[in-house]
Amino acid sequence: MKKFNNIFVVDDDLVYHFIIKKLFSKCNINVNTSYFFNGLEAIDDLKNKIQTDSEPDLILLDINMPVCDGWHFLEEFRKIKQNLSKDVTVYLISSSNDVSDLNKSKLYEDEVKKYYYKPMSQEDFETIFV
């Protein structure tokens, strides 16, 4: 099993938060998870956790959110990632199957490990955590 201690889930959908919690439980994954409803909340929290034990190891990031979407989050993340004490793995998880979003995600190949479609299956979830 891959070792992740602190995880950020950045998505404005409460149903998605519920599904992720159920997948953690079903797969017996015990991690510290912080949930955010937009990229601004997440990036602000991340900035406050730089060089602490609370930095996330993993970020599950939606694209389409109010206030600050996933693309803007990634731009801000790019600016601060060198200040983090560890490499943070980012997965995009979106309901968008638009080719332009898939292509845009490739512009962030240094930040984004993989693009997953919602709803996330248990098999997809396990490829991240197991």
Rank of each mutant, 00 (worst) to 15 (best):
F37H: 09
L58G: 08
P119M: 07
D12F: 14
K26G: 09
N32V: 05
I20L: 08
M1K: 11
L74P: 00
F37Y: 12
I19Q: 04
F77P: 00
V90K: 04
D98L: 13
V31R: 05
S34P: 00
V88T: 15
D53M: 12
N30M: 02
T127I: 08
K2Y: 11
N30R: 00
K22A: 05
V9P: 00
T89L: 10
D45I: 03
F8E: 00
I50H: 12
K21M: 08
I20S: 01
E109P: 01
D44Q: 11
Y116Q: 03
D62P: 00
E126T: 12
L61C: 14
V9K: 02
D101V: 09
K106L: 10
L61N: 13
P119Q: 06
K3D: 15
T89A: 06
F36K: 00
N103F: 15
V90I: 15
N28K: 08
N5Y: 14
K86Q: 12
K3L: 12
N28R: 06
H72A: 09
D44T: 13
D11T: 03
F8S: 00
F18R: 04
F77T: 02
N38Y: 10
P119D: 07
E111Y: 11
E126Y: 10
S85W: 12
S105K: 01
S100R: 02
T127M: 08
K81D: 09
L40K: 13
S25C: 06
N48T: 10
T33Y: 13
K114M: 01
D69M: 01
I63F: 04
K3V: 15
Q51Y: 13
S85I: 08
Q82A: 04
D12G: 15
F18T: 08
S95T: 05
G39F: 13
C68L: 15
L74F: 10
N32T: 06
H72D: 06
H72C: 03
N83A: 06
D87M: 13
L14I: 09
F8N: 00
P66A: 10
L74M: 11
G39M: 12
K86Y: 11
L84Y: 07
E41V: 09
V130K: 10
S96H: 05
E55L: 13
V9S: 03
I43M: 05
K3A: 14
V88I: 15
I63T: 01
V112D: 10
K114V: 00
I19Y: 07
I128T: 04
I7M: 04
I19G: 02
L107V: 10
S94V: 10
K22Y: 09
L61P: 11
Q122K: 03
Y116H: 12
Q51N: 15
N103T: 12
V99K: 09
P119G: 07
K114P: 00
K86N: 05
H17L: 05
F8I: 01
K22L: 07
K118D: 08
L40Q: 13
N5I: 11
L61E: 14
S96Q: 04
K86G: 05
G39R: 12
D124Q: 10
Y115D: 01
K3R: 13
D45P: 00
D87C: 11
D110A: 12
D124F: 07
S96L: 05
I50N: 11
S95N: 03
F77L: 03
